[in-house]
Design a protein around this nucleic acid. Structure first.
Lengths: 204, 204
DNA sequence: CTGACGTATCGGAACGGGAACGTATCGATG
DNA sequence: CATCGATACGTTCCCGTTCCGATACGTCAG
């Protein structure tokens, strides 16, 4: 169960009949995600991605059988946890930092989530890829922050507001564009945390 | 600037060479909105709407020039304020009632908002129709509830949590399906109001 | 180590198939 | 006699496939 040269034969063993370097692959992924953000999932075309990356449709279809699979692969490559590594020793400060981190999110991934929000209901693989890439890691990281606060005794483990914190953060993030017409930036989110989240948790 | 019979000549002046009664028209609107909820905006077809209402495509295109205009008309006909008429004399109770009202929202209009969320970025008329039909009236009604609470002295007019209440309500409403995998029902929203919103406003 | 050769992959382009928009025709009907 | 429903049509668009020449990688002889 410890394949070393077997599963990644490219860099060392070389050969690699595919001439697509990981960097090149990432260009494809970046391009399709960008087009999704701009035009929505349905409006994205393989031709468009091919054109914008100056590759051919054949190349894309050689690597991924179908458009949803291609998009799902792009999403999986996108997995990154932005709330990770936040641990200041204070729950209030952790949440402020999380808000700040989420603010940089704002434009890019919020639009992605928005654009894929409904397309996801049609394709199970897409659904799972989206959750695993953008939603669950962040939620889990946020819950960890809260649990550490509970462990330090800053909040009671059964405090009723606890369970709503992740939904609140993501909710405000996603909904401000609709309600106020502009994306939620770091400032807005930090103010929100201080005005609503912390007081609800009893952290003054 | 006060055309009365001119812009709505149908009901009273009647006759109207169009044989489409307002009830029939509403059937078209209901059908297209339902299909949008199920399949998303892009996947909705005029043929599908025609089939499901047993009318012909020609009939639809005689009344509305294009698909976005048709959908926009359907949205405009959908305008209904669900938070209106809430006035119990207590801010906390008003907010609980609003949460309950929003819970019935949940399935139908949340899915609609989700499905149109990105299509709206392409067509300005759609954008405006969606905001006027589903978003602004509810926000305005919610703000009125808050203002009455301020007027009664239940909350300070400059309480920092005030401005975030609408975004919080809508945010949690829209995001719970993504975070927890199920729609936000009335119970969930009322618990949320009591656990998070009211404490943040200092209403115990 | 070097240089030529075979071959698999690449990019380009064209193609078939299908779906949906929007138009047009036509008979039926009230 | 205008409007309805049905149907067929032209157009456009995109998915996914296929073919072809060009290119560059990997290999091996010298």
């Amino acid at each position: 169960m410890t394949p070393q040269a077997a599963d990644r034969p490219d860099t060392v063993v070389a050969s690699r009949r595919s001439k697509i370097t990981p960097e090149r692959e990432q260009e494809f992924f970046d391009a399709v995600l960008e087009q999704i953000r701009e035009c929505g999932y349905d409006a994205v075309t393989m031709e468009g991605v091919a054109a914008s990356t100056r590759c051919s449709k054949s190349t894309l279809y050689r690597q991924w059988k179908t458009k949803p699979q291609f998009v799902a692969a792009a999403l999986r490559s996108h997995r990154r946890v932005r709330f990770a590594g936040i641990d200041t020793g204070s729950l209030a400060e952790d949440l402020r930092q999380a808000a700040r981190a989420a603010g940089e999110w704002s434009g890019k991934d919020t639009r992605l989530l928005q654009a894929l929000g409904h397309a996801v209901m049609q394709d199970a693989e897409l659904q799972q890829a989206l959750r695993e890439a953008l939603v669950e890691p962040e939620i889990a990281a946020l819950r960890q922050i809260l649990e550490r606060g509970v462990a330090r005794g800053e909040v009671a483990a059964d405090h009723p507001a606890l369970e709503y914190v992740p939904a609140q953060m993501f909710g405000v993030l996603r909904v401000r564009p609709v309600v106020e017409g502009e994306y939620a930036d770091a400032d807005y989110l930090v103010r929100f945390v201080e005005a609503a989240v912390l007081p609800a948790l009893g952290l003054t």
